[in-house]
Design a protein around this nucleic acid. Structure first.
Length: 467
DNA sequence: AGCACA
């Protein structure tokens, strides 16, 4: 039966201004396609790396005759069309236009939208961001903000080329550890293009900078905010202790409930409040103790450990900037154990744990692709940080790939391991965490305190912008 | 080496 009257013989397509190209290099770029095709006419759209082998592509000419030109040229040419020495087979596409499935974030521009995964806002100072991205060219402006997707930054370069070079080199990589606070274990950058072309920075502050205008007024409130991180001489945030722990959970194969966290963290003292939230596909939590000492003990004992056997729900702990959480007393994502049951009803529903994000107009939330499941940056004690050479660009191994914590990332037991609970080391306080009936936690990783690598001297210059 | 997927 002929379907829809559209006769599609395998080898005789009707002409189309869209050409289908085969046998391309798997990593063929749009630029290479354009190089090949532009002698025949104006290219209005491309789509490369198509198909299971990524070796097909589509090119759309402005005009049908241009496509016909190209096909007929190579039909009679003795020299086949080639890309990097590979013969490229060209035919008319059976469609008449390329559907542009480029998500907005893939449309190149001079402003990058950077999502920094696995950190609390403020863990990565704006100066560190500036330093990292300045390796690729002059950074004009930076604005940072916190949205549902997580901690994000808009970074404005003067031109698209510089921006795309930075994106190529840094997307999916991690900021060198020596530029990060000690407690940050993984910090992946997800980079897409913003639709912005010129950011409107009103003030120099801890959230935003305009490097083209050093005389821009300093926002008085923003700079002296209580939440402003303590920044060392190298622009690197020091980590003030706090009674509130910030937990970033990795490899979330199983749900971690408030009760589970309470069970785990109560081993070290009274847990006052808990809040669980999702950022950028990552589960994070804040756990509040009455004092810093308990928090420190819990942090030391639990850092890097997994709630479930098999490397699941691995905890990364740091001190939060918060000291007193404002959470709903009883919800599925939060708990306030300091509130007597009787007054629960009277509790107002105030769940704002985080400060209000600054006003930024529709920064595209980038492709929120969490690299869930990949163990990252196992702390390797004593390992000096690899030197970060800004001159290595273009997909080179500018950033060291993190040593993986779980070799092979084995897909081990599908069911949660009801493993034996492990007593937190060095604590006289005895555990009460098995009795609740919640899943106990176990330690499947050797305890490795992450030692601050003294190694790399931070790159010079780039003094923090203080007003 | 034979048509993409928002």
């Amino acid at each position: 039966m002929s379907t829809s009257g559209q006769q599609q013989f395998r080898y005789t397509q009707t002409p189309s201004k869209v050409l289908h190209l085969r046998n391309l290099p798997w990593d063929c770029s749009d630029e290479e396609l354009v190089e090949l095709c532009k002698p025949f006419g104006k290219i209005v759209n491309t789509k490369c790396n198509v198909g299971a082998n990524r070796n097909q592509a589509f090119v759309e000419f402005a005009d049908l005759n241009q496509a016909i030109n190209m096909v007929s040229y190579y039909a009679s040419s003795s020299e086949p069309a080639q890309v990097r020495g590979k013969t490229v087979y060209i035919q008319y596409s059976n469609r008449n236009e390329i559907v542009n499935n480029k998500s907005p974030g893939d449309v190149p521009g001079n402003v990058l939208l950077v999502t920094i995964e696995g950190v609390e806002a403020g863990d990565v100072s704006i100066d560190v961001i500036h330093l990292v991205f300045s390796a690729f060219g002059f950074v004009q402006k930076i604005a940072t903000f916190e949205k549902a997707a997580g901690f994000q930054a808009l970074i404005q370069f003067s031109d698209v080329g510089t921006a795309s070079a930075a994106r190529e080199a840094l997307d999916g990589r991690s900021i060198p550890k020596y530029l990060l606070p000690e407690h940050v274990n993984h910090c992946h950058l997800r980079i897409s293009y913003s639709a912005h072309t010129d950011l409107n920075i009103k003030f120099q502050s801890h959230r935003s900078r305009d490097y083209t205008n050093p005389y821009l007024p300093v926002n008085p409130t923003a700079m002296e905010g209580v939440l402003q991180p303590v920044v060392g001489p190298d622009g690197k945030k020091k980590e003030p202790e706090s009674n509130v722990l910030f937990a970033s959970l990795e490899n979330m194969q199983y749900a971690v409930t408030v009760d589970v966290l309470n069970t785990v963290f109560s081993a070290f003292g009274t847990v006052q409040k808990i809040a669980i939230f999702e950022k950028n596909g990552q589960t994070q939590a804040l756990i509040q103790y009455p004092d810093v000492t308990i928090a420190a003990a819990a942090k030391d004992a639990l850092e890097g450990h997994c709630i479930y056997d098999g490397g699941y729900c691995k905890l990364h702990l740091s001190y939060s900037r918060h000291t007193d959480l404002n959470v709903q007393a009883y919800s599925d994502k939060s708990r306030d154990y300091t509130v007597p049951e009787s007054s629960l009803l009277a509790m107002q529903q105030a769940s704002a744990v985080h400060a209000t994000p600054p006003v930024w107009h529709n920064p595209q939330s980038g492709p929120v692709q969490s690299s869930a499941g990949y163990a990252t940056t196992g702390t390797v004690p004593g390992q000096a940080p690899p030197a970060w050479n800004p001159n290595l660009q273009g997909g080179g191994s500018t950033f060291p790939s993190a040593p993986t914590g779980y070799p092979g990332h084995s897909y081990a037991p599908p069911a949660p391991a009801y493993a034996t609970a492990v007593h937190p080391p060095g604590l006289s306080q005895q555990t009460n965490h098995i009795a609740t009936g919640s899943r106990p936690f176990s330690v499947s990783q050797p305890f490795q305190p992450s030692t601050m690598p003294p190694g790399g001297v931070p790159p010079p210059g780039h003094a923090p912008y203080h007003g």
